[in-house]
Design a protein around this nucleic acid. Structure first.
Length: 116
DNA sequence: ACATTGACCGGTT
DNA sequence: AAACCGGCCAATG
């Protein structure tokens, strides 16, 4: 049977598996991609239950602040190994390493500071 | 059934 | 930067 949660799990796995090397994604982004922008918390819960056999790069998932998974020693090493940038405070430098799947120039209207 | 917790998020102090 | 708050939802006792 297909509970909404089951389907969500599949989609979440799918997304995580697609994260490129050296990049990270946030729970919120995954939630958004899976059509549940408000359920970022649920995504975290699902990821916590990922079987190691699936070999999903779940170490590339961090929270919106770039914070790593609580109680997971070694995650940092894995990421650094892939070339993910870290900030002095121990958080991932999202500005540099977040996986941006959508980048539209349309949003850029007030973006670049034009000065004369 | 109720209360608490958690690999969260965005906004406000 | 950090702490706090309300919202969200499944898992757990």
């Amino acid at each position: 049977m297909n509970t909404p949660t089951e389907e969500l799990r599949q989609e979440v796995y799918h997304v995580v598996a697609a994260i490129p090397r050296g990049k990270v994604i946030t729970y919120g982004q995954i939630a958004f991609l899976t059509g549940r922008p408000q359920n970022s918390r649920l995504v975290g819960h699902l990821l916590h239950g990922v079987p190691r056999e699936l070999r999903l790069p779940c170490h590339r998932v961090v929270n919106a602040s770039g914070r790593l998974v609580p109680g997971w020693s070694g995650q940092r090493a894995l990421l650094e190994q892939e070339g993910v940038a870290f900030r002095p405070n121990g958080h991932v430098d999202l500005k540099a390493s977040q996986w941006k799947f959508m980048e539209t120039e349309a949003l850029d209207i007030s973006g670049p500071p034009t000065r004369s």
